[in-house]
Simulated scan of single mutants.
Amino acid sequence: MTSKAALFALLTMWGVGAGACLPSYAEEAMAEATSAMAPNAKPGFTDRVWSKVDDGGLPGVMKIFLSDGTLVQDSCWETHRLSQWTLTSDTAVKWNEDGMDITAQIVSLADTELVLNVNGIGDEKYTAAAVPYLCPDMPKG
């Protein structure tokens, strides 16, 4: 009976010891992953839904630069896309769409406004998305 009690005590100690280490390891791993993907991301740039202001009549164009290096692109009229993104400098980001690298300069960044110059073609203006938001009905046919 003593060996069973000792084994139970030992197993309990191992379980408690391993569990106590997991949260700090997970936090460290997340911090390392975040810094590897977005090493110098400007505050307010990541983890925010950016809604395009000048959308040419097509509503709901949005970009979300997640701090884990995932870019979510969506709109009310097109299927969403997930891509990896990285900072290439303090003011430049890069992602890949259908095998083509897209580069963008961060022209300006404020609390509620983001301006990107995509591929040197022209500026795209975004604003922090309003919540709640619902896409309008799109005409069919």
Results as ranks from 00 to 15, higher is better:
119 N>M: 15
49 V>R: 05
96 N>Q: 10
112 T>C: 04
140 K>R: 14
45 F>I: 13
139 P>L: 10
78 E>R: 05
17 G>S: 10
106 I>L: 13
31 A>S: 14
18 A>E: 03
97 E>A: 05
60 G>E: 09
62 M>Q: 10
7 L>E: 10
54 D>L: 12
98 D>L: 03
126 Y>M: 06
137 D>S: 11
55 D>S: 14
106 I>Q: 09
56 G>Y: 14
128 A>E: 06
15 G>V: 01
115 V>L: 06
44 G>V: 08
94 K>A: 15
47 D>E: 12
56 G>L: 14
59 P>L: 07
131 V>G: 02
104 A>C: 08
25 Y>Q: 09
139 P>Q: 09
136 P>C: 11
124 E>Q: 14
139 P>Y: 09
125 K>C: 03
96 N>V: 11
40 N>M: 08
10 L>G: 13
25 Y>M: 07
69 G>A: 11
34 T>M: 11
115 V>H: 04
34 T>G: 02
34 T>L: 04
20 A>P: 00
135 C>G: 06
77 W>K: 04
60 G>S: 13
134 L>I: 12
10 L>Y: 07
61 V>F: 14
98 D>F: 01
86 T>A: 11
68 D>I: 13
126 Y>N: 04
64 I>G: 00
86 T>H: 03
51 S>M: 13
129 A>C: 09
88 T>A: 03
39 P>Q: 12
141 G>S: 12
85 W>A: 00
33 A>R: 12
3 S>K: 09
82 L>F: 09
11 L>Y: 02
14 W>N: 00
113 E>H: 10
91 T>G: 03
33 A>F: 09
108 S>N: 10
116 L>F: 07
114 L>F: 06
5 A>L: 10
126 Y>I: 08
24 S>Q: 05
38 A>G: 05
114 L>Y: 04
125 K>L: 08
89 S>M: 09
31 A>Y: 07
83 S>T: 02
85 W>D: 00
62 M>V: 09
119 N>A: 15
75 S>T: 05
50 W>M: 07
85 W>I: 01
15 G>K: 01
92 A>I: 00
102 I>W: 01
135 C>Q: 06
109 L>Y: 07
54 D>K: 15
86 T>G: 02
114 L>R: 03
12 T>M: 08
78 E>G: 01
126 Y>A: 04
60 G>F: 05
133 Y>G: 07
100 M>F: 10
27 E>K: 15
97 E>H: 05
26 A>Q: 13
95 W>A: 02
124 E>W: 06
2 T>V: 13
111 D>H: 12
39 P>H: 09
28 E>M: 04
3 S>V: 12
123 D>G: 10
70 T>W: 00
137 D>G: 03
55 D>Q: 10
15 G>H: 02
117 N>K: 15
49 V>E: 04
60 G>A: 13
105 Q>E: 14
20 A>C: 04
41 A>R: 02
4 K>Y: 15
